[in-house]
Design a protein around this nucleic acid. Structure first.
Lengths: 345, 345
DNA sequence: TAAGGTTCTGCAATCGTTTGCAGACGACAA
DNA sequence: TTGTCGTCTGCAAACGATTGCAGAACCTTA
């Protein structure tokens, strides 16, 4: 019981002194890769001493020497968005198992903040990066390419080729929705779009357009409105714009579930019932989408898997820097709930 | 244009050589605290060179020398739970501004994983810890106290005294609910409890009991059931248990919003309507609680502020290690929506 | 017994900073 | 001119690990 246990950090030297060997020997014992270089007898003594003294390697010193930090940076636009929380969880699950720690950066959709965070990642010498904030054209990504540290894009990708990414196949998702809606007899289908400078926003819309074409329908300009963000408010405003054209439609496809929620709000405010008057469908299948009123039909994006897969690819890229970049698209799934029904009229 | 730009990291020595001074001088220039030690003329040259060469300090080397990592560890039980995502965001917002990075650890409610993560935090020499996973009695916390690194508990606190914490005032929250329910004429109020080994679970229940006493009611054992976790499923099972007693009641207070959702499910399955037959109220006011069916009456916990305040206290504790621990309780707020109505009968 | 070959262990340099100490230099006063 | 004081800069030793190299110790074989 010391009076004021300030910080009796145990170092290799303490162990070395305790056992009567050199620090390099201790180091060798403690590193699995070099352990067989030293006599079993000594090795045992060292291990024991290390445990008794409660040795913890100093990560700084290790990293300084080896240039590996076992740390990876994750950049997300909004932690509060359940989708990104899921992504992080997926990433953390596989990284934790490999001894890596994740440093998160929340950019709140600010370019400056993203840049600042990227710099901080570099100072901290992260071994790799996963970026979930990319715009379709993104300087930040260009910046990363100039650098040698591996990174993979996730959820949102860019138009660049030659960079790894793992995302959901948004185009298929869009087509699934249209096919579902068409079966219910819908012909006039509005689109409340997410930002078109994001791959998610853009490709989901492409899926919608292609899906329409497949069933012999056409996208009408009046039935399209782009929100400035993937938020409930933006969704509501976009829906309101479409409503204002007084163009007839019986269904709305929203850029994501949040925007779909905004559509709910706007429909309600206009005395329209969902799905009786207007069907609504979203993207993501965020947690509790099944508890909304009405339960939301939406495209389930396998976010946990997307995150996990991104982490796996990153790990691979770290171990094997010369392996070519990979682009993975995971298949989404339509989950039909109560916000879509037969077209009226 | 080098052929294979491997990693031309710029160090102090490069700058020193470039300018023709010693590294120590460069170091002094680049550290605001010591910059006035060197002649303005040289200082200027150094700064310029540093910018031209694109110098980035090596965080490892710095930390190794100074024993400060400007890194703090955050431990949460479940990233996917919107409540904790909010907490992290609150923390990150204030920490980012002070130049700190946050390393997150997701324990998934596993003690082993928590311990592992704590060890990793120590290896990485985090300057501080914020812990959102504490049980009312928690060895992990005891473990932390033995150590000299500052930490603060958040969301969930322990029975220990002498450790800093910032939480929502759960007891008041519980009382608010009862007072609201009593005004609506409810007399038989069931409690679907969260785990009682967590301070949130425990204190919310205490608030319920005290609130009941204040309005001259009594807590009936039959109307209490404890879920094993703060989840929808656990909430549903607990609700089912209470229903099975066939005891009369007109309202349920749930341990949190997720459990309240579980109550919705069970009521629905039993042909009971909310709020017509049974009122339901939760805790947390998680995102989209207003979009549930029916919109959930719940106690709003100021999670963003809780996180931010925790970060602030931690920072204070890092700068000033001898300041006594602080326990902060933020005031919650009842938000009345559509899941509570007049008591029938 | 000596030569040759294998293990094993210690030495010392190194990673990129920070920082106490001391020397260099100029200025000023006596 | 000399002494003293201040200001600035360089030297070198850390911080705690890893690792190529060389030498010591042992074993084998002739």
């Amino acid at each position: 019981m010391t009076v004021h246990n300030s910080k009796p950090r145990v170092t290799l030297r303490d162990i070395a002194r305790h056992v009567g060997v050199h620090t390099s020997t201790v180091s060798r014992v403690l590193n699995p890769g070099t352990r067989q270089m030293v006599t079993e007898e000594i090795a045992e003594k060292v291990t024991r001493a290390s445990e008794e003294l409660g040795y913890r390697p100093n990560a700084f010193a290790q990293s300084l020497k080896t240039n590996r930090s076992f740390t990876i940076g994750v950049m997300v636009p909004d932690l509060t968005n359940a989708a990104f929380a899921l992504i992080i969880k997926g990433i953390d699950n596989v990284l934790e198992a490999s001894g890596y720690s994740v440093i998160v950066a929340n950019t709140d959709n600010s370019k400056e903040r993203a840049k600042r965070n990227l710099d901080k990642f570099r100072e901290r010498h992260v071994d790799g990066l996963v970026i979930a904030t990319a715009r379709r054209q993104d300087e930040l990504v260009a910046d990363c390419r100039a650098d040698a540290t591996p990174f993979v894009l996730t959820v949102r990708s860019t138009t660049d080729i030659g960079v790894s990414s793992v995302v959901s196949d948004e185009i298929i998702g869009g087509k699934m929705i249209i096919s579902h809606l068409a079966q219910l007899g819908h012909k006039d289908i509005a689109y409340v779009a997410g930002p078109q400078f994001l791959s998610t926003g853009f490709e989901r819309y492409q899926g919608y357009v292609q899906g329409l074409a497949q069933v012999g329908l056409e996208a009408k300009p009046d039935l399209f409105a782009e929100g400035e963000a993937f938020t409930e408010e933006a969704g509501r405003r976009a829906a309101s714009k479409i409503l204002a054209t007084r163009q007839k439609f019986t269904a709305i496809v929203a850029g994501n579930d949040l925007m779909a929620l905004g559509c709910y709000d706007e429909l309600l405010a206009n005395g329209l019932r969902c799905p009786k008057d207007i069907s609504v469908v979203g993207f993501d299948d965020m947690p509790f989408a099944g508890h909304f009123n009405p339960p939301l039909t939406t495209v389930h994006t396998p976010l946990l898997d997307v995150g996990a897969e991104a982490a796996r690819i990153l790990l691979e890229q770290i171990e094997e820097p010369d392996v070519p970049p990979r682009n993975q698209k995971l298949r989404p799934e339509l989950v039909v709930r109560a916000s879509t029904g037969l077209a009226y009229g």
